[in-house]
Design a protein around this nucleic acid. Structure first.
Lengths: 159, 159
DNA sequence: AGCAATTACTTGGCTAGCCACATAAGAAGT
DNA sequence: ACTTCTTATGTGGCTAGCCAAGTAATTGCT
């Protein structure tokens, strides 16, 4: 304790450089994504649901939920707003009247290419100043950190 | 329905692996931070403001703002809630009656060590499965990506 | 059967975070 | 002095995201 308690603690970054870097990077990255999505009248996170539906239309909320990993209520509200925006429909499943099957509308399908372009632009900007090696290491490390964090967050999670 | 399914576009991850990794990592990381902060009756982001005040008490909102990089309204509201929670006080600056000087209360100062411990635990968990080299590369890359993204977000020096 | 547990989803309530607008006060130009 | 201009902060409105509680339908257990 005699070497780590100077009267002038620099800042938050020194206490946890990696955590702080994640925090700042996430906010900047999300900000750019939000700006790009706003041109399509979308909000951050909605494009992930749409991309899942582009991949396979007609999924239930539970199926979408499992892949994106968000809270039930978050997905439910986001889908309701996207339905009100005319991007998709939610109809009760025929053989399981609890479930709501989500289908894209024409307006929703029309966003497939714009979202793909936007996502590619975002990726290209993010990677711009990195070498291919750095991208590989960064992505690998991101997954490792994510797994550590998730394991700690859910003490009963066994993979 | 009659649309010829493209050769199985995997998912969002393949469109932008790095962006997707950032998104997922950020959510998991923030989730763990939120869980840890909840034990102290804090919310994500508040601890950053407090740590800034631990570093130097009696700053104005504008000074805090510059360092954390959030929107001024976000900081304004967060500080109001933290004041209502008894963690700090906001008093008009004597020589500049626009500015509000933020001072920690005893209750706020009491969180210094708990927050430092929590931040250290979070960092330790995040770094657990990484080598020192990986941490260095990851942090460096995070800053590079953040800079690229911020430059693009603010079209000030576009080529 | 019948009743409990699980699953699927909705709603309410809270904060974070952004934008846009509004207010107030100091600074600067005329 | 009298306007702008800039700065510092507050407020309203929107969505994202979480937790917690509630509803409805399916499954499971006795």
């Amino acid at each position: 304790m005699s070497d780590t308690t100077p009267p002038e603690l620099p800042a938050t970054a020194s206490q946890g450089p990696l955590s702080y870097a994640i925090f700042q990077l996430a906010r900047a990255h999300r900000g750019l994504a939000a700006a790009m999505l706003r041109a399509m009248n979308l909000h951050p996170g909605q494009e992930l649901l749409l991309m899942r539906l582009f991949d396979r239309d007609g999924q239930t909320q539970a199926e979408l939920l499992e892949h994106v990993g968000l809270d039930h209520s978050t997905v439910s509200k986001a889908l309701r707003r996207m339905q009100e925006a005319g991007l998709l429909t939610r109809t009760p499943a025929p053989h399981d009247r609890r479930a709501m099957v989500v289908h894209l509308t024409d307006a929703g399908r029309a966003l497939r290419q714009p979202i793909a372009d936007m996502w590619r632009d975002l990726e290209e900007i993010s990677v711009r100043d990195l070498t291919a090696d750095q991208v590989a290491v960064f992505t690998e490390c991101a997954h490792l950190v994510e797994r550590s964090v998730r394991e700690r967050d859910r003490p009963a999670s066994a993979e």
